[in-house]
Design a protein around this nucleic acid. Structure first.
Lengths: 365, 365
DNA sequence: GTGAAAGCGCTAACAT
DNA sequence: ATGTTAGCGCTTTCAC
């Protein structure tokens, strides 16, 4: 039993041209606006436009890409989109790219945890003109990009000598968090993080600077790493619960990120500890859920909008012909958003202050 | 100051062929495995393979797409990836597609809330061979797909007469949830949902069947809609808080989805109500966070893996030449996962049972 | 102001 | 077993 005819062949430029009685080249100039010396008469233009509209013409991207040698797409190689931080990042990048006429294609990886080299290759094979890459460690992909990939790459992560990069001052963030814990009177403070984060540049930075800052206050910091991945709330919860049951040596915790902090708060609570009364908790990223929790979470907020905006413009700049600037390094400053999870007087559970230092954004040439 | 030379031109099939001393066509058969009558001698094959590896040859997708008239990509038009349900859906679809040699391109929409017609067009313009579309309402996009788009489309949503669709029995889910609330002794039960959901097929289904089921038990159900979007936890929280402060006519709540339920629980708690003691709460979707909450959430779990798997195979089937079956409708059954948010005796906060009816998957011809 | 022609990189039917 | 040929749909330089 036949249901439908084979698909209607798509309208091509040739069809439009024929129907309008002009040459394909003319139609091309009118419809796909190649900047050309060609000027067309208003009459012809309108006629072609009309015909195109009537026939529902849409340019064939593959053909355009092949001919123009650029696809007007940019690839994003980041973490799994299940992590709200990366979901947000993807959305922001896409938004800024669209403003410039580009489209975003994601190397989603289907949770297969390919190495980032494969991600890069996949993206390039898909014909992207450039790549925004979350790069937090010395990986094969990073090395590949650094020694000169066949399309421009921008890192979001730690600075590179040979590739544009945009980075956030995670150290400062950790310092602010540490000082905040001390400010509210906590003296037995620790850093709680999944093992995966220890391999990351920013993970180490957070850890180091947190400890340094705490020590500068004459306090001995504790570090509580647990076996787990960055976005795994349930591992964080289990680990925190275990930790709380086997040790009571802390009253303040900086967590690697908000997801970890959310897990931690739940684990602590299951173990009978109260947040912030017994333990103050701080996260990183300000994911949407953070402000909605029963105990809203104090967090170090990265200027993600600025980060994505910058990454996009750096990349698009590289795409301009005859642009051979040395690599840029753009640094952005985090801010701390204080909420109930670090409230001094936990009687009313709303956020009490938002401390936002002016953002620095310097350029290093 | 010059930083790097213009990009190295990519290795093309012609380069490889020349270097290996064979014709491009031969190289094409060897490297890009076009199914052809052509058989090559092992010697030549190896030589070409070696050269290709040495030169780092990768096929130009645009050229292949243009020539083959298929891109080996499938588009996904669904909700925003910030919603964990859609993030999961995207990941699953991508995974199944990869298994079949296809890639997933997402119409992410950058939070611009384009109508789905525009989404479809965007995807098609990007050259996808087929589209998986979340379709829960009579929209322009749905109509466009139903009257015959120029590539196959599969709906995830409610059944269509002219397009393949996969759907979950949301009605059954709502019924199970309603009965569960009654079972645990709740008598003043309501349905809590964002206004956006009322426009959705499944939203109405949940609402209707919930009310019907409740009435069948001789109880008068309440409906609490609030102004808001599907994935907006904060609006749900505010609405629930307001509701709790202005009315105490409920002790059991079915929420449109888990995100709404999470917001609801927080709002209720802020208003001084306890979950499940004062109000039992149920969600839909079983998002990862649901099981991790302080009060783990009872939820109606959709067989998302099965749904995505099915959508992918239906779509790929349509792509086969000479396949003209009438539209398929595949229905999947939800199950209810009972956790602490509906515990009868809320003394210990772990999940106490997982009730999973066998899944039905029928086909309608 | 418009048309002609060449070709982007690859594939598939056909010839040898 | 390999080479020839003819484009896929579009852009761009150049000629008219």
């Amino acid at each position: 039993m036949e249901h439908k005819a084979p698909e209607p062949k798509r309208t091509t430029l040739r069809n439009v041209a024929a129907e309008a009685g002009v040459h394909v080249a003319t139609a091309a100039v009118i419809l796909n606006g190649a900047r050309s010396s060609t000027v067309v008469s208003p009459g012809t233009r309108q006629r072609v436009l009309d015909v195109a509209a009537r026939l529902g013409y849409r340019a064939n991207r593959a053909a355009q890409t092949l001919r123009r040698q650029r696809s007007m797409t940019i690839g994003l190689a980041a973490g799994p989109v299940q992590n709200p931080f990366f979901a947000e990042m993807a959305t922001l990048c896409e938004s800024f790219l669209l403003d410039s006429g580009y489209e975003l294609v994601m190397a989603m990886d289907a949770g297969r945890y390919l190495d980032d080299k494969a991600l890069l290759e996949t993206l390039r094979a898909r014909g992207v003109d450039g790549i925004i890459m979350w790069s937090e460690r010395e990986t094969e992909g990073r090395r590949l990009a650094e020694k000169g990939f066949d399309c421009p790459v921008v890192f979001f992560g730690y600075p590179s000598e040979s590739v544009d990069s945009v980075t956030a001052d995670f150290g400062l963030g950790a310092q602010m968090a540490a000082e905040h814990l001390v400010d509210i009177g906590r003296r037995r403070v620790g850093y709680f993080c999944p093992s995966e984060s220890l391999a990351l540049w920013s993970g180490n930075l957070r850890l180091q600077r947190f400890c340094d800052t705490i020590r500068a206050h004459g306090i001995h910091p504790a570090v509580f790493p647990y076996e787990g991945r960055l976005g795994d709330v349930s591992r964080a919860r289990e680990a925190a619960e275990t930790l709380a049951r086997t040790s009571d040596t802390f009253d303040g915790l900086l967590c690697f990120n908000d997801l970890v902090a959310i897990g931690a708060m739940m684990g602590l609570r299951r173990a009978g500890l109260r947040v912030p009364d017994d333990v103050a908790v701080i996260g990183f990223d300000d994911v949407p859920m953070a402000s909605q929790l029963d105990t809203p979470l104090t967090t170090v907020d990265l200027p993600l909008v600025e980060i994505c905006q910058t990454a996009v413009s750096l990349l698009l700049r590289r795409l301009e012909p005859n642009y051979f600037d040395p690599p840029h390094i753009v640094r952005t400053a985090p801010s701390i958003i204080a909420r109930a999870s670090t409230l001094e007087n936990p009687s009313h559970p709303e956020s009490f202050t938002v401390q936002t230092p002016s953002r620095i954004s310097e350029r290093n040439t």
